[in-house]
Amino acid sequence: MAALLYASRLAGCPYEIVLVASNNPAAPGLDLARAEGVPTFALAHKGMAREEHDAAMHHALTAARADYVALAGYMRVLSDGFVAQWAGRMLNIHPSLLPRYPGLHTHQRAIEAGDSHGGCSVHLVTATLDEGPLLGQLAVAIRPGDTADTLAARVLFAEHQLYPRCLADYVARVRDPRWLTAQVRERAMALPEAEETLSHGMACFGVVKGKKFAWVSADHHGDGRVALLVKISGTDEQADLIERDPERYFRPAYFGGDWIAIRLDLGDTDWDAVDDWLQRSWRAIAPKRLTALLDVADMF
């Protein structure tokens, strides 16, 4: 926790710590957080149902306007409901090179197995303990004569380097043009007969040997924005969208009034809505032989 906190105060770090929470009111990290001016929340879990305790934690996190949760030595198994509420937004660090040695006693297990290296892993938290998608790993050599304690001490140094880097990278990805383009690509290419090409320096998507239905503009002409360009009904809808949310919507340069640009780099992109925009835009240009099949499928 201290490593994450102090890293957050370095120039250019994309995250800040808004709350340090614990199920142990005597946790030393709480005193450190208070000394550094970080709000804290502590609630002992003894005598509380797991779901009740996790609901109180969730309320404290949302009240602090937290966007992500970084577990740091939180040794209590979280309820499935809590994990679901923070799906894709909760990270953990584990002292082994996952998938090797989930659970406890990781250093001793690595030594007894004769491994050349131990290490640590940062992963997303899922309902299955220590099995979420990996975000980063750092290997630490096991030296002759190492004990679990001596290896753990060196792995701790690695943890303090790895966790802040992985958290920063993960938080920053929501404004990274490459990551944003990849998210659009995954959705656009799932549409029937979609193909990707490069046009005017932008990734664009269309029907094979047909018209284009989407473009991704990344700092196009130096505008500093990453946006999805899709077809709409016309100038009236374009004007209405821009009037309702001028930060998110704008008229794309060199495109007509039947296109809209939707900012993807504001940090709060609704990817379900992006799915809908892409499907609508695809339908607007796809040949009838493709749309007719989907129209029939939609009836069922």
Rank of each mutant, 00 (worst) to 15 (best):
A3N: 13
L4D: 08
Y6H: 13
L10M: 11
A11I: 09
A11L: 11
C13N: 12
I17A: 13
A27M: 09
P28T: 05
P28R: 07
G29D: 07
G29P: 03
A35Q: 14
A44Y: 01
H45Y: 15
K46H: 12
R50Q: 14
A66T: 07
D67V: 06
D67W: 05
Y68I: 12
A70F: 07
G73H: 00
Y74I: 14
V77S: 06
G81Y: 11
G81Q: 10
A87D: 12
G88A: 09
M90N: 10
N92D: 07
H94N: 01
H94E: 00
L98F: 03
H107P: 04
Q108P: 01
A110P: 07
A113E: 05
H117N: 10
C120G: 00
D130W: 07
D130N: 00
G136Q: 06
L138C: 03
A141M: 11
A148Y: 00
D149H: 05
D149C: 04
L151S: 02
R154W: 09
V155W: 10
F157Q: 15
E159N: 12
L162M: 07
Y163D: 07
L167G: 08
Y170R: 13
A172Y: 08
R173G: 09
V174P: 04
V174F: 09
V174C: 13
R178P: 04
T181Q: 10
T181W: 02
M189K: 02
E193L: 12
A194M: 04
A194F: 03
E196G: 05
S217M: 06
A218D: 07
A218W: 06
A218E: 14
D219G: 13
D219W: 05
H221L: 14
D223S: 02
I232M: 06
S233E: 15
Q238Y: 00
A239V: 07
A239C: 03
D240G: 12
E243M: 03
E243A: 15
P246E: 09
R248P: 03
F250L: 11
R251G: 08
I260D: 00
I260K: 09
A261N: 13
L266D: 11
D270S: 04
A273D: 15
V274Y: 02
V274E: 02
D275T: 15
W277T: 01
A286Y: 03
A292E: 11
D295T: 06
